[in-house]
Design a protein around this nucleic acid. Structure first.
Lengths: 333, 333
DNA sequence: TGTAAATTTGTAATCGATTACAAATTTACG
DNA sequence: CGTAAATTTGTAATCGATTACAAATTTACA
């Protein structure tokens, strides 16, 4: 395959001129531009971007670490892609849950220069060595912890969960179950806190019995349904920490011969596309998926370009959520 | 950031020895290995992979062009990822529908060396210049056309659709609607052919009236539902070319006051996760998503490594499908 | 111990671009 | 036309690794 030298010699110019034809065509005379174009055409020349990236010490790539099992993330990723495309970055995608052992390998792609930034869907376990002074071109998306080691874009999970459970309380529910998510995701703990806040405000007791540990999968919802169905007293409403589990729990409750929402109201979290189309349609919290993705990517671009305010960049950036009321909830009898 | 030269000089060895420590550690003596390790440690050295990739003229990356709107593809992508990880490739992901104009830019990433192969979810528009003689390290996944310009991994859409419509016929249905997919996807035409084959076998007339053009989205299912509800005579069964449209159509038919399956049976295609959880659960064709992805990636690896048989590589590689009968279909009254 | 074979090491060329700097050319204008 | 300024061009260094080849060292064994 032809290289820049061959193009230059065929065109009768120097390699610098050919290079400039790509990087600053306005600096090449008309005459030489024509010659270069002709030579490129003739040799079907394509610049070797591995070489270009090497000399510029830039990869024009970013890495997204996302658990693909959650369809909600698809929309988030589309938001990321949109900005990435505009800014000229390509997106590498890995699912950290598929190969947890490789996680550090992925982070080190920053140091080996393969990517210029990372969007991670959970708070990094290892903190920066010099926390607060050095920003690593990592953005945490949809997860957050106090003293987060990297900039964060997410929703206020505490407030959102609280809003959702407030709503259940307003419907008269007094026994409200809570199906949690994966323990190592901080959002799980924040949503739990919101759930507890709402109960407390309503003067309801906090009982661990009403809390079942899930893992964000439909299956864990199905399993939890049986437990809730047998529980004494049985909850009249269940808060699930994502829509997939809510869909699973609805399915499971129906199998137990219970009606949703007449016997048990169920709420989810995320507002995935299918929340509208399950039966009954799901009452849930809508996260602005695409905006989460595009905001995170914009922030990452600023980090990469060094355009950020060190004072504020570590303050979490919260996007608003909406309570979406559909058919899976009703007033308690 | 430290480079190999600094490591070499700190360790008191040549750069070649440091390089060999990574590429062929068994060729470095114990004494020097220790010195190199110490120097790497001390300088926190990470090899510049941009440089390595450049000298080796390899990117160790592949590109996946997938319309992310389809959740079925998530599983396919997981299958791709699994093999990619094992083989040491990283996966770049773009959604061609998001930026159709950039499509050629993506293909040219092969020529600019940014990726070593491409998995594309549709047959490429531009054929190879020298069709059949040169293989471009492109694998077409889930789409197929006679004289395909690149190797193909997919299912036999004709047979699968035929199997599905055979089943509807066996339930006694005589008026069977067909909601098609995007026209530029060849799978759409193959599934249409399967639908027509089944009707023909059953001695049923082929009527264009029963065919509505969809685009694989839930919305197009919703819209089609109204049309089918008003149709005279109204079909007693509808074959949708994917599950998303089937879910939309079920939703739409319910809104029109029709019962599924009692008034109209609905079948989909793909067997996405939510097919099980919609109401009623969807009768559909299961495509082996993960296997499609992993097979395509294995094939692509062989292309990249030159390990393929030019005689057979362009023959389509069909994976088996299953008819999954659930609650959205019943015998005609 | 001496010599050949095997192993380990280092020197230096190489990959294909970019780019600083100097040189050459063109343009502007009194 | 002559000179200065502006524009265009080319030379050659550079990025950080890999690797062919030769040289040095170690090992094996009579």
């Amino acid at each position: 395959m032809a290289n820049i030298k061959e193009v230059a010699s065929l065109a009768g110019v120097s390699v610098a001129t050919v290079s400039r034809y790509f990087s600053a065509p306005e600096k090449v005379s008309k005459k030489n531009t024509d010659k270069v174009i002709k030579a490129i055409e003739q040799l079907n020349y394509k610049p070797n971007l591995l070489a270009r990236n090497f000399t510029q010490s830039r990869s024009y790539s970013i890495l997204v670490m996302a658990p693909l099992a959650n369809p909600f993330l698809l929309d988030v990723i589309q938001g990321i892609q949109e900005i990435a495309r505009i800014k000229g970055y390509t997106v590498l995608l890995v699912d950290p849950l598929e190969a947890p052992d490789d996680e550090n390998k992925y982070y080190s792609m920053l140091e080996t220069r393969l990517v210029e930034g990372i969007i991670d869907f959970k708070v990094q376990k290892r903190l920066n060595k010099k926390h607060g002074t050095r920003i690593d071109n990592i953005v945490t998306l949809c997860d957050y912890v106090e003293n987060n080691p990297s900039p964060v874009v997410t929703v206020d999970d505490v407030k959102a969960a609280e809003k959702l459970v407030d709503y259940l309380v307003s419907l008269g529910h007094r026994h409200i179950g809570c199906l949690t998510g994966l323990d190592f995701i901080h959002a799980t703990h924040h949503r739990k806190l919101g759930y507890q806040n709402a109960l407390q405000k309503a003067g309801l007791p906090l009982s661990n019995k009403l809390m079942i540990n899930g893992d964000f999968s439909v299956t864990s919802g199905l399993n939890a349904a049986k437990e809730y169905a047998d529980m004494q007293p049985r909850p009249t409403a269940i808060f699930c920490m994502n829509d997939k589990m809510a869909i699973g729990i609805i399915q499971g409750l129906k199998a137990e011969g219970l009606r949703v929402p007449e016997d048990i109201s169920v709420v989810g979290f995320d507002d995935i596309e299918f929340a509208k189309y399950c039966d009954p349609p799901l009452t849930t919290i809508r996260q602005p998926a695409k905006e989460l993705g595009s905001s995170a990517m914009k922030l990452l671009c600023n980090l990469i370009e060094g355009k950020f305010d060190p004072e504020t960049v570590l303050r979490p950036y919260f996007l608003p959520t909406d309570l979406i009321v559909r058919g899976s909830t009703c007033a308690v009898k």
